[in-house]
Write a protein that binds this DNA or RNA. Structure first.
Lengths: 343, 343
DNA sequence: GATGCTTGAGTTACCCGTAACGTTTCGCTA
DNA sequence: TAGCGAAACGTTACGGGTAACTCAAGCATC
């Protein structure tokens, strides 16, 4: 039995075993508490574990067993968006309490970055993957199918997922908001967002929104700030542009709450009263929105719960429990006070 | 050469090699693009890589080389706090662009959770660790010292770090705010926070704050909502309690911006005008604070930059470049309009 | 006293890549 | 055409841990 200290001064099981005067295998059994050894042997081994500061090498364990690790890869577009931070929090808390670790990937909303990240993470033999969004590059899809590990697609509910899916129906959430605003008596409605990528949850919301508004006899003027992230300032300037171009806008729906705050701020800075002169509606129901004096009209999604649900589905699959492959986490419209009351 | 498919239907290098009619080693060289093979051989091997969908197993690579992985463990208290989400974003973006992955740990502000997480993550042979905070349990400290890998402690600047440190001096930031408020003419000042743990950045801020206020002839009435997280509602109720107990409070300093918003909301809901009747000051300068109509008086910390700096120090150490062991990222006081102007 | 069962502990093979080294092939020079 | 060196490729030996198997000793049963 070789038991020389390895280059990077890490203590290996062999060294513990030799110090305790037993074989590697016996030491392994003791460390894992697997049974099949005497009390005396266990004490001798554990004494050396403490004395040498032995830490197991999980890479070797995974390697030896030809099984997967306790890693779960989690891809998130970005953390500047509070919404995704909450989702990640829900995921990691739940995974962590069951002995799994999240390997993070910020994919910047691009499929190419996601593909690169998937390739890298798969090479670490993760137990599973949790991905934001239902659209992936062809290469990514191939790799995911071949990987043979559980995959949960979150955010955008997918009735025919790669494997499992949890989220909400974005089209419906946009539709509901459209119907609500029509019900409030608005007909000349604006939309301010950033993306025009078709493979995108925000686009689905916009489509649902337009369908409801147009079906209700209204019309939608769109203002897309391309090449921008969906935060406060694009909301501010997007509103300025929209109002400069389109006359008679009565109400504006934004891609998300952050942009809506930008728009709200622009309107009040121009002396427009909200909702008397113009209505403002956001999406996502940021936590801070609920404590500001004027409640923003928005759509609430249980972000933390969404993350937890994703982790639960992953864990269920990993422990071979039966689980549903598709879970709708639901949303609800928050009336707020930034659009006028339905008559 | 054995080349049977392994149990979990993962394609191994041996299988590629056999399919291409070369040895494992040659296949390895081709896959790594290391040179030492003919064009013809390379084409044959790569054809099989594509055909079989081979993905390298990085566990084996790490294992073979007896070196560390490309993982970097990142411990963060929680992501509900936008501040830490930004820090994490800065870290992961920078690490990711250099081929490293973040393994996340949400340690809930407790040393015990951090210790458990450190033990687990170390067993995966990470390349390094980035930890929030300068205080760790004795066991954790031992493990970190023995691990022989770079460790960056962030958030709370530490002049004698375990290894490297980047952040700000929280005492000073509290002190500056205290001096500023005194300069604005306030003397009867309140503080609302959650923690009374001494091993804590917020406590350091409070200490600095008290020193400045008391040194300037003022006094501080403290209201600590224990067992609560530092978010909106504790700010709201903490303010209610503080004002009920202490008479004549002219201005309140909060543990962070989220709590300050809660307090601001409580005050306005009670008909108190800010800053005419009462001053409000937060800490952290949340992004949303900068777009709301009334700018919150706060302390700005470059969160994203902090995360990037931590990642840079880690990467420098990993590539054996000379790097400083301590970096002060700095902060600046944001006057805002929620405290009355200095006379 | 022979047999079988338990219990404790050692042996061996293997997981998948890579470093180090050994071997073959081939073109070029003398 | 022998001799030589470099390029191309194969072989072997790890690395840390575990599954599966083997083996020996202790004990009870008939």
């Amino acid at each position: 039995m070789k038991a020389k200290p390895s280059k990077n001064n890490k203590v290996s099981l062999s060294e513990v075993a030799r110090a305790a005067g037993v074989s590697k295998m016996t030491a392994s059994r003791v460390v894992r508490g697997e049974g099949g050894y005497s009390e005396d042997t266990r004490d001798r081994v554990m004494a050396q574990v403490d004395a040498l500061g032995y830490l197991p090498n999980r890479l070797a364990t995974v390697f030896a067993g030809d099984k997967s690790s306790t890693f779960v890869g989690v891809s998130i577009p970005d953390l500047g968006n509070e919404v995704f931070a909450q989702v990640l929090e829900g995921i990691d808390r739940k995974l962590g309490s069951f002995g799994h670790q999240s390997v993070l990937g910020l994919t910047q909303h691009t499929l190419q970055e996601e593909e690169n990240w998937i390739r890298t993470v798969l090479s670490w033999q993760p137990a599973g993957l949790i991905l934001t969004g239902r659209y992936h590059s062809p290469n990514a899809t191939d790799m995911l199918k071949n990987a043979g590990i559980p995959v949960v697609e979150i955010w955008d509910l997918n009735s025919s997922p790669l494997d499992m899916s949890v989220g909400i129906n974005h089209f419906d959430s946009g539709f509901d908001m459209g119907r609500y605003l029509i019900g409030c008596g608005y007909t000349n409605i604006g939309y301010v967002g950033t993306s025009h990528d078709t493979a995108n949850a925000a686009t689905m919301r916009l489509e649902g929104f337009c369908k409801a508004v147009e079906g209700g006899g209204g019309q939608v003027a769109k203002q897309l700030c391309l090449h921008d992230t969906a935060t406060y300032y694009p909301g501010f300037y997007g509103t300025e542009q929209l109002l400069a171009v389109s006359a008679g806008i009565e109400c504006i729906f934004y891609q998300n709450d952050a942009m809506a705050f930008g728009g709200l701020n622009f309107c009040t800075s121009k002396g427009l009263r909200v909702p008397a002169d113009i209505g403002i509606a956001g999406w996502g129901n940021l936590p801070i929105a609920s404590v500001l004096p004027q409640r923003l009209t928005s759509v609430n999604v249980p972000h933390l719960k969404l993350g937890q649900a994703a982790a639960e589905m992953m864990l269920a699959r990993l422990s071979d429990e039966p689980e549903e492959s598709c879970r709708d986490i639901g949303f609800n419209l928050v009336p707020g006070s930034t659009v006028r009351r339905a008559s």
